[in-house]
Design a protein around this nucleic acid. Structure first.
Length: 431
RNA sequence: GGAGGGAUGGCAGAGCGGCCGAAUGCGAGGCUCUUGAAAAGCCUUGGGAGUGCAAGCUCCCCGUGGGUUCAAAUCCCACUCCCUCCGCCA
């Protein structure tokens, strides 16, 4: 969440910044008013509590000096104040809960240099690499769901039989490819990132820290019996790994990476882009993430982006980079770059990575701070993350791009080590 | 799943319901002494909120949330986590 103090010292500027993200001024004003009310009630309760403390001490002294009877009047006085106090506290709790909820729902401020825009149509293509629409042969213009079927490496029908629609099933070399892509991403980033294998089911506060709750509860799978949530991305458990901790500045920046399955209900996107692997409920992804200082953040954003692109380049896929406009930035995001690969079979640009800077929005929710080396007060950290590689869409673009005239799929060289000597995927006999 | 035990500051570890935000030890930082170091001595050393130009003042936090009481780290209840034993299990 944003720093409440911004609402006190900089209400106008904050409202203006949030309006770039299409947040109505009333929402900001409401939070600001609740904050005023909350502080007012807090100072009243503090006052009362202080008086009760003094009285209580006196009660003790009088009782010791002159016995219980002598203290009766003081006790009565304190009891009355106590009743007043609990009434006041109840009101304060009510207002605080409202303030917290309002604050939790306010999006992060966009970065100043994030491009202005109303929707995804206004995202700015920063660069396009390796894309030449005239280069593609007819045998590459086959969508991956057909290729997958033909080669027996993607079985959407049987996936649906087991998990329902949008739960893909990979088999044979298709399954190997899925795993190989993850392994590739982990290997490529192991020079600087610590690998983590976190839980895939998490508690509500963990989802709240990264911004999925309370606002986007419909997007996540919830296991009611145990009140656990399936992670939509490794960003969620990785960000909360250091929740509530104060990290010495010397340890920053933290660099973490994790492979996890990712679960998404895609409630808001029903019916859109649902063919094949374009949008699925469960997929594998390797995420890279950093916790750092405000000063380290800009460089880290570039590093994460370079690493996300690095894997795509290694795979030899054409891609482009989008600078996400204010109207399309996610709730927690200050600045985002999307990486899209071109899939010739479906003739579409597929988003395969989103590299984002969250400023201190997530870290404040999660309570991740650092102790500055030079002394002074503890500071809230910045967080950044991006997909190092998200399997299904890369899988799709890859089989479409590398499909040969005979229908087999040639594997890019960087994947060979993971394929037990194979260099191409041909039709398998067994079904 | 069953039976026990536990959770206090960076760590260890005290804490008859009333100067306890918390003894003590270790660790860390600063200073004195020293040519330098060690030793010794002195001092400092948790997090957060409000208010004030500031010095400061006030309040909250002893796993979390409730309750009892004039007053809770201390008593009661619930939950979470950790440890030990039994059962089950990849």
């Amino acid at each position: 969440m944003i720093d409440v103090r911004r609402l006190r010292t900089d209400l106008e500027a904050t409202t203006a910044a949030l309006s770039r993200k299409r947040v109505p001024a009333e929402d900001v004003q409401r939070a600001a008013s609740l904050d005023v009310a909350s502080r007012d009630l807090a100072s009243q309760t503090e006052d009362l509590r202080a008086r009760i403390k003094v009285l209580s001490r006196q009660v003790g002294e009088v009782m010791r000096a002159s016995g219980p009877q002598a203290a009766e009047e003081l006790r009565e006085q304190s009891r009355r104040l106590g009743e007043e106090l609990s009434a006041l506290e109840a009101r304060a709790a009510e207002v605080d809960a409202q303030l917290r909820d309002a604050l939790l729902r306010l999006p992060n401020l966009p970065a100043e240099d994030a491009p202005e825009g109303a929707s995804e149509a206004d995202n700015v293509v920063v660069r396009t690499v390796g894309f030449d629409p005239g280069r593609y042969q007819p045998h590459q213009r086959v969508p991956h769901w057909d290729i997958g079927n033909e080669l027996g490496i993607l079985d959407l029908e049987r996936g649906a039989k087991i998990g329902g629609s949008m739960f893909p099933l990979f088999r044979g070399a298709g399954a190997t490819l899925s795993r190989a892509l993850c392994q590739l991403a982990l290997d490529r980033n192991s020079d600087a990132f610590t690998e983590v294998r976190p839980p895939s089911l998490v508690r509500a506060p963990v989802l709240e820290a990264t911004g999925q709750l309370p606002k986007f509860a419909d997007e996540a799978y919830h296991i009611e019996r145990d009140d656990l949530w399936a992670v939509p991305t490794a960003e969620v458990p990785l960000t909360s790994m250091r929740a509530g901790e104060i990290i010495p500045e010397a340890e920053l920046p933290l660099r973490l990476m994790a492979y996890t399955p990712c679960f998404r209900r895609e409630a808001g996107a029903a019916g859109r882009d649902t063919r094949g692997l374009l949008r699925v409920h469960e997929f594998d992804k390797v995420e890279i993430l950093s916790v750092c200082t405000r000063e380290q953040a800009p460089e880290m954003l570039q590093e994460l982006l370079a690493r996300a692109i690095g894997s795509i380049e290694a795979l030899g896929l054409p891609y482009r980079v989008l600078d996400i406009c204010t109207g399309d930035l996610g709730q927690s995001h200050a600045r985002s770059f999307d990486v899209e690969v071109y899939a010739p079979g479906c003739d579409m640009w597929l988003e395969v990575s989103s590299v984002s800077w969250f400023s201190d929005y997530q870290a404040r929710r999660a309570g991740i701070r650092y102790r500055p080396s030079g002394g002074g007060g503890n500071q809230v950290c910045d967080t950044l993350n991006g997909s190092a590689l998200a399997v299904p869409r890369v899988w799709a673009a890859l089989v479409e791009t590398y499909r040969q005239e005979d229908g087999s799929v040639l594997l890019p060289e960087c994947l060979h080590p993971y394929f037990r000597g194979a260099t191409r995927i041909a039709a398998s006999v067994s079904r």
